[in-house]
């Protein structure tokens, strides 16, 4: 009897064990299931969230649109300012070109006038030729004067000889002859000194006028160099304009 009871109890325990396991699994599954009310609530919440997000997106889109329009306006303003500035710069550059060209033209005019200096140098050259011719005349006159002085010395010498021949009567005449001879010798010395001065004069006159002439050519060379530079500047401006 006891055994039978034990067997019944054991059977009951063995039968109840899988049932309890099944019951536990059903409990867990029921816990995982959401009921329809809850689901509807969640769906509504999701729709609301979606609606809010759509609103936010629309707001962002509107803001972006406004910002884009604002940027476009700003860009337009900047473009306008740039165009205005470029116009001003072009105008200023054109003015600068005009001024530089005017200056170049003024320089050209001055250079052209400076090139007329050549006439001054030619005049100096002519003056030099006149002076040299004048010096040559003075040489000729001094040579003639020297010849006269030599002749006077010879005449005075002859007079002294004649006075000596005349003896006591010629004594006074000898004194006069000696005086004439002394004067002629002084004149000869003066003539030699004058000749030396004339040679110095020739050298100084010639080299001074040659210096003027060469200096004139040096200046003309420099002015022609300036003229070339000015013409190149004008050509460069004409190409750049």
């Amino acid at each position: 009897m006891v055994n039978a009871i034990l067997l019944v109890v054991l059977g009951a325990v063995l039968a109840g064990l899988p049932l309890s396991l099944l019951w536990l699994r059903q409990q867990r599954r029921a816990q995982r299931l959401i009921d329809a009310g809850q689901l509807e609530l969640v769906r509504q919440q999701a729709q609301e969230a979606l609606a809010r997000q759509e609103q936010q997106i629309q707001a962002h889109e509107q803001q972006a649109q406004q910002e884009r329009l604002s940027a476009q306006r700003l860009l337009e303003e900047m473009r306008h300012e740039s165009e205005t500035m470029i116009g001003q710069l072009q105008s200023q550059q054109s003015d600068s070109f005009s001024r530089v060209k005017e200056n170049c033209d003024a320089s050209q005019d001055t250079i052209a006038k400076l090139l007329g200096l050549v006439r001054t140098f030619e005049r100096w050259h002519d003056d030099m030729n006149v002076l040299i011719a004048h010096n040559r005349d003075m040489h000729r006159m001094n040579d003639e004067f020297a010849l006269i002085v030599n002749q006077v010395i010879i005449v005075a010498l002859n007079a002294s000889i004649e006075a000596a021949r005349a003896g006591a009567h010629g004594r006074g005449f000898a004194v006069v002859a000696q005086e004439v001879r002394d004067l002629a010798q002084r004149a000869e010395k003066l003539s030699k000194s004058y000749r030396a001065n004339l040679y110095q004069n020739d050298l100084i006159t010639t080299t001074t006028f040659q210096d003027l002439q060469a200096g004139g050519k040096m200046i003309m060379g420099a002015v022609i160099g300036l003229d070339l530079i000015n013409k190149k500047t004008r050509d460069t401006l004409a190409e750049a304009a």
Partner: peptide, 10 residues
Amino acid sequence: HLGMSTPNVI
């Protein structure tokens, strides 16, 4: 910068 004269006889 140089310049040269014409010749003269002295």
